[in-house]
Design a binder for these strands. Structure first.
Length: 487
RNA sequence: CGGGGUAUGGCGCAGUCUGGUAGCGCAUCUGCUUUGGGAGCAGAGGGUCGCAGGUUCGAAUCCUGCUGCCCCGACCA
């Protein structure tokens, strides 16, 4: 299915009549947005002068980069490949990665999950307990320490979290519990490709839920389901949950969250209603089982499937206007697997009846590093990246078109200082470059708003504000600019 | 894991067939001019030609072995 047509999937164009771009649900500029409902002020707001930043942009495209996100990440100086499927994150890329992490973390916390941090190196013995040490195969990077002890670089953490759980939790009164971390994983892919989209080392948020019974586990699953809808929506992505194979994780209930992008790796089919469904609001009752079950049912009752699970006859039964077939990228995957690990690893609690019961578990993954690439696949044009506001490395690019000119220098310095003071992430291009080079740089790195300060406009007391996504240009006074972005 | 490529300055490439002082564009540095969509002129610096052997008076070039990386397929957060 995937290989049909003679061309690799990612090179084929989008299937017909599909809307692939979505507006972010909010502007996020003021950080007072009701949808996002930020819990904490983002730590990553740190304005920067480009002349002092480390932004190694490339004018030419490195030949190894085949897909647009990989090309643009290399050109924009976001990552550097250090080995096959292994990347260093350069400052610009790291900023985006951190902003994605922040959103993921906020929504996990909002849904009641609790953050911890587990190590990347694990003991083989732990994996022998679950039986996966042999089963996982060559994708697991196995290493020996100086004492010849068998260790491994974690590809996932079900075993370790189960070990931590069983060491401390004895009573059903401590449930439900959902623990997560955001940590680097290593899976020794046979063939890493597409930059950070399919790398061997990748960042993953993995959460693990523990419940006394199946009904409780179901609620935990639904909470993560709703949290994922919110997480992707906050990044301006339309993610559609689709029933999925459980693969090596195991279990009997699983959904993949797929975002639509014309360069996606897999072919997906879904009902057109998914394009406009309302995402759960920030204040939705995560602790109410009926509310959460309602969200789940609303988002799963219409047809949606990847090509592996596709039922052509069910899809074709839909009215033609409601059929959407497109390409998709998997950005999240959730599983309910019951006692698959708690049973063999003896993670048990005493129930109200005094009997020991293995806990019901689920796991929930999002790949922030893959999301960086997926976001670019969904948001770019010929000139470069177009970041959604919420994950942009900088909110504003301030371009001084004539460095050395007293008026433009002073106007830029004033704007920069005021924006910085107001907590706006601004990148001030104060390099002694020609205007064309500055426009090209800001377009390439995808800063959502460009504030352009040149001698001509300034003579009339105006600067130009350009929207990277729409291209719309406005002529505003510097004071109006400050009001616009700090209101 | 099968198949196919490729490796020459930071990036993109030529040179290899037919062995003889390592080249081009971009980038970088200096100076002057320029300044609203990747500027122009002049000058400069930077490469043990992936690694190890071998052939030869002489190897980027020929031979042998190895390694890295990329692409296609099967597999995958």
């Amino acid at each position: 299915m995937r290989a049909s047509g003679g061309l690799p999937a990612y090179r084929r164009g989008p299937l017909a009549s599909v809307r692939l771009s979505f507006a972010a649900p909010c502007c996020c500029l003021a950080r007072k947005c009701a949808f996002c409902a930020r819990i904490a002020h983002p730590a990553q707001v740190s304005p920067m002068r480009l002349s002092r930043f480390f932004l190694p942009i490339l004018r030419e495209t490195p030949k190894e980069a085949e897909i647009v996100s990989h090309r643009l990440m290399l050109r924009a100086g976001m990552v550097r490949q250090e080995s096959a499927g292994i990347y260093a994150w350069l400052p610009l890329g790291l900023r985006v990665l951190r902003k994605i992490e922040d959103i993921v973390r906020e929504e996990q916390n909002r849904a009641g999950a609790i953050e911890l941090l587990m190590p990347v190196i694990q003991s083989a013995d732990l994996w022998r307990e679950s039986g996966r040490y042999e089963a996982y195969g060559k994708e697991m990077l196995r290493i020996a320490d100086r004492h010849e002890r068998e260790m491994l670089f974690g590809p996932t953490n079900e075993e370790m979290i189960t070990e931590i759980f069983r060491a401390y939790v004895r009573s059903y009164k401590d449930l439900p519990l959902n623990l997560y971390h955001i940590q680097w994983k290593f899976r020794d892919e046979v063939r890493p490709r597409f930059g950070v989209m399919r790398s061997r080392e990748f960042l993953m948020k993995d959460a693990y839920s523990f419940d006394l019974d199946a009904a409780g586990a179901r609620h935990s699953y639904n909470k993560m389901f709703a949290a994922y809808l919110r997480t992707f929506a906050r990044m301006g992505l339309k993610a559609i949950p689709m029933r999925a194979d459980t693969g090596p994780i195991g279990g009997d209930l699983s959904h993949e969250f797929i975002i639509l992008a014309s360069t996606g790796e897999s072919e997906v089919f879904c009902h057109a209603d998914y394009m406009d469904m309302p995402t759960p609001p920030a204040d939705i009752a995560f602790d109410d089982r009926d509310v959460m079950q309602g969200v789940f049912e609303e988002w799963t009752k219409r047809y949606a499937a990847t090509s592996e699970m596709h039922d052509a006859s069910a899809f074709d039964a839909l009215p033609e206007a409601q059929r959407v077939s497109a390409r998709g990228i998997e950005v999240g995957h959730i599983f309910y697997f019951g006692t698959k690990y708690s049973q063999p690893m003896r993670a048990v609690v005493n129930g109200p009846d005094g009997k020991e019961t293995p806990v019901q578990m689920g796991s929930y993954g999002i790949g922030p590093s893959r999301l960086v690439a997926a976001l670019i696949e969904a948001n770019h044009d010929d000139a470069g990246i177009i970041w959604p506001e919420s994950v942009a490395p900088f909110t504003i690019g301030l371009a001084n078109l004539k460095v050395g000119d007293a008026a433009t220098d002073a106007a830029c310095a004033d704007l920069y200082a005021k924006l910085e003071k107001a907590g706006v992430d601004v990148l001030y291009d104060d390099r002694d470059e020609r205007p064309g080079a500055k426009f090209a740089t800001l377009d390439l790195i995808g800063v959502p708003h460009q504030v352009i300060v040149g001698p001509k406009g300034l003579a009339e007391g105006k600067v130009e504000v350009k929207n990277r996504r729409t291209g719309a240009k406005e002529s505003l006074s510097p004071d109006e600019v400050i009001n616009r972005f700090t209101a």
